[in-house]
Amino acid sequence: MAEGVGAVSRVGPRGAVGGYLRAVGAIVWKDIAAELRSRELLGSMLVFALLVILIFNFALELDLRTRQTVTSGVLWVTFAFAGTLGLNRSMAIEKDRGCLDGLLLAPVDRSAIFFGKVLSNLLFMIIVETIILPLYSLLYNVNLFHPGLIAVILLGSIGYVVVGTLLSAMAVQARTRDILLPILLFPVVLPVLVAAVRATTGVLQGLPLEDYQAWLNLLIAYDVIFLGVAIVSFDYVVEE
């Protein structure tokens, strides 16, 4: 039936896990393909992050010692602001032309849609962080190349993106979505930001692990708890 609509078929004979992973992978692939074409999301996140660290650099004329103590805060404020921009844009793309409805109509568990969006948002955030870190090192004359810092940034970014993806799915339904997301997001991610700043400070100042272990534990606990909350609640967030 080359020219017919095609015989009716009930799709999805493959395994549930295979179908789930295939859906997650499809969403990540789709987001990367769209971003490679438009460069809207990464471009805006990068420009914004660069502006933030430049503004802080000129606004805070700090000596070397003070600089080392504020580095973590400035770094995470930069990541958080740029991340919010990316999260907003990422979900707005889904809302435009009703694409979110198209996703929700697919016969997959809706947590697969959530995981797909989390993974692509996390990927974009990590790309921005990878570009920002060396630039920050140069501008602030602070050595940020500590192996422990990668773990802290990863844990902090996971928590931020998990909560951010859930809340952006909620905010995108509103007319005031651009201002609503930061208002909803920042109070909820405050524990992540505080823990990430403290753990980053510990790593950069070369303190023994025990001194900032509690903050790392808080980051891990936050990531696990909010991942569970998001999986359970995403279905209700996106449904009318």
Partner: peptide, 23 residues
């Protein structure tokens, strides 16, 4: 509403939805 991604081609859009439906 078309429920299609403007930054993807027709092929990419159908490929994406095909994967979501396990075609």
């Amino acid at each position: 509403q078309p429920l299609l991604y403007g930054d993807l081609t027709a092929d990419q859009n159908l490929r994406f939805f095909g994967r979501m439906y396990g075609v």
